[in-house]
Amino acid sequence: MLVADHLVKEFGGLRAVDDVSFTLERGEVLGFLGPNGAGKTTTMRMLAGCLEPDSGCARIAGHDCVQDRIEAQSRLGYLPEGAPAYPAMTPRAFVAFGLQVRGFSGDALKRATELALDRARLGAAASQPIGTLSKGYKRRAALAAAIAHDPAVLILDEPTDGLDPNQKDGVRELIREMAPEKAIIISTHILDEVPAVCSRAIIIAEGRLLFDGTPHALEAVTSDATIEAAFRHLTAGPRATVEAA
């Protein structure tokens, strides 16, 4: 469903993403982990067709994210880092805009808009300008726009950042609901999120993929048997790729 094939990206001579490859199938929820500046967001931007790799390629449902961008992006829901949205628009208008661009109109537009607002639990905030909403509601408005067209692939860059514990649970529940039908990547700093929603985890640091396996296998990397210890061990210690089943 989603393929990252030897992705490389440099900025001003600095290699932000260095030969990252993985595939993701329907039904998988991939936790994309790494310290700040590890290359998570750059990788996600390349997968979303927002940034072209220097070499390698990304494919969504068989469509190249550069050569066949429109087809690839029509199967993608993307929540960018910081959940940017137009402050003067209401979440309802924002979600509807993303759907209209994708050809939705009439009753289908109305139904898909209301369903997405409902699933993202916007409530009464759906009718208020985004600029007046709290950080959590803004993120939910952007999340609603990402899921509204029922895409086969979801790329969510820190979807729970800035949410209170109840809101985090709501988003995790939503991801679990959608998981059987989609291929989902979530990047996060919150390691608790991995066992809570992910069926698989990837750790990258300094642009290189260091671990690709199940959360259980990640826990088994150190004798502490915790994801925190494995994360520290992999990202702070000597670089060695660990392949796990």
Partner: peptide, 14 residues
Amino acid sequence: DRGTLEFLMALPIP
């Protein structure tokens, strides 16, 4: 400035 360019660039729009 607002970062919405990334949202726009991720939409399937020519």
